[in-house]
Nucleic acid binder design. Structure first.
Lengths: 140, 140
DNA sequence: CAAAATACTTGCTTTTAGCAAGTAAATAAA
DNA sequence: TTTATTTACTTGCTAAAAGCAAGTATTTTG
């Protein structure tokens, strides 16, 4: 009974891990790691934040984050500016190039999703979204 | 219109990545990597297969797989036996210890899923599974 | 039989990540 | 108001995870 439910959820999870894997591959082929892409995405949606506030979301090792940020600066994708009120803090922002690269990654993700649903009719697509919304409501 | 659909699917994907991340953490706390756990799982469901056939599913670097298999052998979790008909091939199997360890990992995964739905009523749980089944049917 | 393909291994390197100690600045406590 | 603690970020060192390319042994194919 109950175990049937667990079994089916786990089966769905395996299926969906593969689905999401397909999506992530499209990003990874761009030469950016998932972590780098996440940072660009965070900064696109929350400009002028600090490493610490990024990490409240991403939850990765501080030291590692510091290095990845350094790398993104060297790639001219982001800038770092020391706060004048609190000199411990450094505000991060995307450069124009960073915005462009983020856009490319974002478009790729959308394209990948689009390809996965292109064989569905519009009503089926809407149905799909409804199922997803329902799952989110139940689990969140 | 269409973009709304893509947006919502991507939003669900982000949500579900986090869900699945929670599940995987329970495995990672056991000291096995995800790759190691996947190999144990493959061998549990398909005994007596070769590294190559495992890799048709897992799709990782051959060399790396070879080393992970060696590690699992050193941990006495799996065995490797050369085929007599084709000496290039080596059949892999779980040892009793491997079966036990796999069971532990499997139980942990189930437990983790169980915890994520424990606050739902039984009808809600059944509904959840229905939504998942519907999504799978649409996307697979 | 020679050449190509298959199955797996090994050496070397890179990427990703984590830990711990350290600097500098700000805040709280004595 | 000095001292201790906390915060924000950095750096050195290390380990784990993964990839690439060359190599061995065996089998298959032309």
């Amino acid at each position: 009974m109950e175990d049937q439910i667990i079994y089916r959820i786990r089966s769905f999870n395996r299926f969906y891990v593969r689905q999401i894997g397909l999506l992530q591959n499209s990003v990874l082929n761009t030469g950016y790691s998932l972590t780098e892409a996440h940072i660009l995405n965070e900064l696109r949606h929350n400009p002028n934040v600090t490493a610490t506030s990024i990490n409240e979301v991403l939850q990765i090792d501080e030291g590692y984050l510091s290095r990845v940020i350094k790398k993104l600066i060297n790639l001219s994708l982001i800038t770092k500016k020391q706060s004048t009120e609190d000199k411990r803090k450094y505000y991060l922002n995307l450069t124009n190039k960073g915005i462009e690269e983020h856009q490319i990654l974002d478009d790729l993700s959308s394209k990948s999703v689009r390809e996965q649903i292109e064989n569905l009719s519009k009503p089926q697509q809407l149905e799909l979204v409804d199922f997803m919304t329902s799952i989110t409501k139940l689990l969140k």
